[in-house]
Write a protein that binds this DNA or RNA. Structure first.
Lengths: 121, 121
DNA sequence: TACATTGTGCATACACGGGATACACAATTT
DNA sequence: AAATTGTGTATCCCGTGTATGCACAATGTA
């Protein structure tokens, strides 16, 4: 499992976990059918509580990205390449709409936003 | 005072207030030296508590956007046009850096981000 | 001075993130 | 079958931060 969590971040730990794992799934870095590490082991690796990992896994389940089977583990769901792209764009767009409303509130034009993006991306 | 607050938003009310007022100041919609409404009146208008308004005003004070005088009121600070532009870009850039790290985690390229922006902005 | 208006400080109620512990279910071993 | 091990689940608790109401201090005005 390749995840980095920040205790100083303003985002809750379970959300950091959810975002990073879902990104890895949708980038194809985690194969369909692959089993995520048991929540105890993940919790130990990351130095967080079992509950925190469980919460992140629950979010993944709710988004349809994994299938949880009690007593066996949590498995990456089956996706076509197209599905992954579609879901990825949905998730990014949802976030982007919220982001842009903030930029708009400061009166920034599309060109200004793109200009700033070119500097920092 | 022209502010809209959402009780269903994930952002705290005082932050919504802070963001909207600071945006208005930096767009030049609120003149330097102008006095913000008293916190009680603002609280009444927005149907929130006095404390909540005070917190937002405190953030504005901390950012140097207003000057608070006990017993008198809160006054928009003096800015040059250049100052306003500089502060505005600082605030937007800070937010944008956080936003883009999310896009990057999904493996999006700059071109892809700009493409999506063109659709929704 | 007396009073109204302004911002400020303190104590409380509530929601949420995070953790420790005990429990329930499934697979494996005996 | 029964015991053991590994898995996810549920309950309870605590700390932090949001939001509130009420009482206090500072300022301005009649």
């Amino acid at each position: 499992m390749n995840v980095t969590i920040s205790n100083t971040s303003e985002k809750p730990i379970y959300q950091q976990l959810y975002e990073q794992i879902s990104a890895q799934i949708l980038k194809g870095e985690l194969e369909s059918g692959f089993c995520l590490p048991p929540i105890r082991q993940a919790a130990l690796e990351l130095n967080v509580s079992v509950i925190t990992v469980k919460k992140a896994w629950e979010e993944l389940e709710r988004s349809g990205l994994i299938n949880t089977v009690t007593g066996k583990g949590c498995f990456i769901a089956e996706f076509s390449q197209g599905d992954m792209l579609r879901i990825r764009n949905e998730m990014v767009l949802k976030q982007m709409e919220s982001d842009t409303s903030y930029y708009k509130s400061f009166g920034l034009t599309l060109d200004e936003v793109i200009g700033l993006l070119n500097k920092i991306y």
